[in-house]
């Protein structure tokens, strides 16, 4: 099950930024060395959406954000900040800090 928190975060992303966000989060995931942190359920959800070319829509983008936050929280925060999505960046940072505790 995809975390609804991430879906809610993605709903706040302006549509003109979604394409770039999807591209950058995909790059973060494909270049990560933290593969072992990827839950297979989430990986399969990403592939399901990629197969159907749906990584730009809310549900697909949410899977990317959730996975990127898990595997590469710092890089994800940086991407979000670069796109001026500061509120989401803060929420990802907080969630990451909680997970570390």
């Amino acid at each position: 099950m995809i975390d609804l928190t991430f879906r809610n975060m993605i709903e706040t992303v302006p549509s003109d930024k979604r394409g770039l966000l999807s591209e950058k989060l995909t790059d973060v995931l494909l270049s990560t060395k933290n593969d072992e942190k990827m839950p297979s359920e989430l990986a399969n959800a990403i592939l399901y959406h990629w197969q159907r070319n749906l990584l730009l829509v809310e549900q697909g983008l949410a899977t990317l954000l959730e996975a990127a936050s898990l595997l590469e929280p710092e890089k994800t925060t940086k991407v979000l900040t670069e796109l001026s999505l500061t509120e989401i960046a803060e929420r990802v940072e907080q969630a990451s800090a909680k997970t570390e505790k």
């Binding site: 995909t26 494909l30 593969d35 990827m38 990986a43 399969n44 990403i46 592939l47 990629w50």
Partner: peptide, 8 residues
Amino acid sequence: ESYWKILY
């Protein structure tokens, strides 16, 4: 490589 990267 992880299966999900190869499939992507």
